[in-house]
Design a protein around this nucleic acid. Structure first.
Length: 286
DNA sequence: CCTCATTCCTGCGGGC
DNA sequence: TGCCCGCAGGAATGAG
């Protein structure tokens, strides 16, 4: 399940394998994969064909590839989100189509194709105008904690100003982007905070500790190439990450907490799950 | 404006 | 053996 570290791994793969190449042909094979593109499949294919791909960019879990050759002057980009199961693969021409191949992009150099493969179709691609360096449709997405321009103090102030639970706040992409269910649980475990602690009740040290934890867990995941639990997540070269074995909370229900050996709890939360240590992560401060 | 529940999708695994 | 159901979850959407 791609969150920020996994998407960054994909971005680096795109930078390495796709930048500077010119699109020769585009096949949009599933309408849902391009549902965010207002013009539909034909418009998507026509407007992407002939364009030269720039260096891939990322904000949170979104990534985009700037497109050269736009004579209208308004910068444009190929924008993508991997959703839950999306992959961007670089595959040699002639490689058998993946079962869930949604979009194929071929290049004028007759080299390997760029393929968007997505089983559950929560992800998708679109073409979008770029303003101030960011695609218009993701202007509301906050900077992510690995962005050098992420404003720590402003985030902490906004977090403590919200009237919601701290995990809901972490998952709010307009407050801080790139954090999904996995890294939210891991960061909360590391910061020893219960997921339902009111964000407005966090002390300043607790809020700072949480942000440090978010950065640490993401940085460590990125260092080993992202998290992977199964074949659903694969990076641009088809290599899986292996951070899963280092998880302390997420998916660890019943297993001993790495700090105090108390069994990790799993409870329903926001139509998904929250994993936490009932001893290290108390709902109320003592 | 703010918060929060709902909805989309498909494959897998557990229970019966 | 086969069917049904729950589960995985990012983010747009609309209700309140």
């Amino acid at each position: 399940m791609p969150e920020l570290p996994e998407v960054e791994v994909v971005r680096r793969g795109l930078e390495r394998w796709a930048a500077g190449r010119t699109v020769a042909a585009v096949e949009a094979l599933h309408p849902r994969a391009i549902r965010r593109h207002p013009g539909g499949a034909d418009d998507f294919s026509a407007r992407l064909t002939g364009r030269t791909l720039g260096v891939a960019q990322r904000r949170g879990k979104y990534l985009w590839v700037p497109l050269d050759g736009d004579l209208e002057g308004g910068d444009e980009a190929l924008l993508g989100h991997l959703g839950m199961s999306g992959q961007l693969l670089i595959q040699p021409i002639g490689t058998p189509d993946e079962t869930h191949l949604r979009v194929r992009v071929a290049f004028t150099d007759d080299g390997p194709e760029l393929r968007f493969v997505d089983q559950r179709t929560f992800g998708g691609l679109s073409l979008d105008a770029v303003k101030d360096g960011v695609p218009l449709t993701i202007a509301h997405i906050a900077r992510d904690p690995l962005d050098p321009q992420f404003a720590d103090a402003a985030f902490i102030a906004a977090l403590r100003a919200k009237s919601t639970g701290v995990k809901r706040a972490l998952l709010d992409q307009s407050l801080i982007s790139g954090v999904g269910n996995i890294y939210a649980d891991e960061a909360l475990w590391r910061a020893r905070l219960h997921f339902e602690r009111p964000s407005s009740g966090l002390t300043l040290p607790e809020a700072k500790r949480l942000l440090v934890a978010v950065r640490e867990v993401m940085g460590e995941a990125l260092a080993v190439g992202g998290t992977s639990f199964d074949s659903l997540y694969v990076n641009v070269n088809g290599e899986s990450g292996y951070f899963a074995r280092a998880l302390n909370a997420y998916g660890q229900a019943g297993r001993p907490c790495g700090r105090c050996a108390t069994p990790i709890n799993r409870v329903a939360f926001m139509n998904r799950s929250s994993y936490y240590c009932p001893r290290c992560q108390k709902a109320a401060r003592p």
